[in-house]
Nucleic acid binder design. Sequence first.
DNA 1: CCGTCAAGATTTCTGCATAATTAATGCGCC
DNA 2: GGCGCATTAATTATGCAGAAATCTTGACGG
Lengths: 251, 251
Amino acid sequence: MAAYSGRGLHGHIVETIGGRILDGTYSPGQTVYPEELERELEVSKTVVREALRVLASKGLVDSRPKRGTFVRPRSEWSLLDASLLRWQRRGTPDRRFLADLAEVRAIIEPAGARLAAVRRTEADLAAMREALAGLADPDADAAAVIEADLRFHRALLAAAHNELMGRLEVVVEAGLRERDRIVHAGERWPDAVPAHRAVLDGVAAGDPAAAAAAVDSLLEQASSDLAHAAGSEAGAAVAPPRPAEPPAAAD
Amino acid sequence: MAAYSGRGLHGHIVETIGGRILDGTYSPGQTVYPEELERELEVSKTVVREALRVLASKGLVDSRPKRGTFVRPRSEWSLLDASLLRWQRRGTPDRRFLADLAEVRAIIEPAGARLAAVRRTEADLAAMREALAGLADPDADAAAVIEADLRFHRALLAAAHNELMGRLEVVVEAGLRERDRIVHAGERWPDAVPAHRAVLDGVAAGDPAAAAAAVDSLLEQASSDLAHAAGSEAGAAVAPPRPAEPPAAAD
DNA sequence: CCGTCAAGATTTCTGCATAATTAATGCGCC
DNA sequence: GGCGCATTAATTATGCAGAAATCTTGACGG
């Protein structure tokens, strides 16, 4: 994956502390003690400080003289960061997080397909075809299928030729891997192939409406599969009447 | 703004080096020499190394033993990071970047309004009303109006009650501030108030379609204002027939 | 062609010095 | 006597310098 952050001792410490913050071991407002971490993780001041610096740049912690280093409120976290999304998935599969993920995907991906249908190049189509082939390969193991699925959605967003849209792949990746973790039985999920093919066809034909509709039904299908696997309804693709908090507490 | 990264000497160095990477002073593939930076910026090894570590966590650089520290290809940058979006705006106003920004906003914000219309609480509406009042205040200076505008859009996304959607405010903020920089004459832009009010009304009424339509027209208006101010058409809200690259290079 | 070795740069460690900020303290004032 | 304010002091992050350790890479030799 991201080679820059996972290599060496430093990256390991960042992941350890970051993971503890996201899974609630360290809760917002709580102070973390660098010296304690040095002893526990058996590393030097330097490594801990560099790790905390990185975490600070992601909005997870803040350190000020005399007050120490403490965990910032969750609202300050840069949740769109790839690392944070990964760490978030390390903890208990949170239903709310899963729903948020699916909801954003349901917004991003159809729109991306719409753009892709207009802007795709031959290279984009080739990438999507390659991924689709990997998805349909009956000899591939579960992990390879997941990777092919991810490649397909990445290629779709890339075909939109919007740099920021392309970076939203982090959300798509998190959603896909989270779904994989829920289903995780390694289900072949063969029904996915025609749905993906429909997306490719719509994009290749240059038909934005068809491409978007294909993505819609793809996500709907994935969502219902996931709901089926997870017992209750876990993630509805289109705005569910999520019960808003009681209108009380008007500040 | 973000207090965690802008304080102290370290934050300054991060901004300096990060800014140079985004504005092209250091281009992808190029090697950066820590010792050189130490001398030029007159700081110690530690500060430079911590800064490079933070930049590495944002995907800007990668350092490997024996090979040195070098700038990663732009495709690896975490462009959704708040700092990167800010640094990106420090350079020349890039037309392409501006268009991408507007395009993503045109996807995110209507969808956010749709959700907000269903899920908003009284507190959400109060926040939006407060921001709207600030936007309409005839005694406020240009900066205050910008901030109120930003608050309004932030409150709108927050009312969607989707954590990830809320974090997409970074894109909205970048878009707003960039637009401000183009127009920058401090135009009162009074026409914006009724458009914003329409959004609020739609959300308050619990009418998703109306809220989304109001946001659509708001963004369209902003986009055309911007096009008018920037001479040529700078950012069309809805998918323009951006000429795709020639279909050559199939791989 | 493969394994071993050596060079080189990053990475890590140690200890110390500095700066900054908060909290307490003491003083004067109401 | 209580309260507000400036000063002081303590605590913590921050910055610095040098050396040792580690790992990758490239070359050399079998």
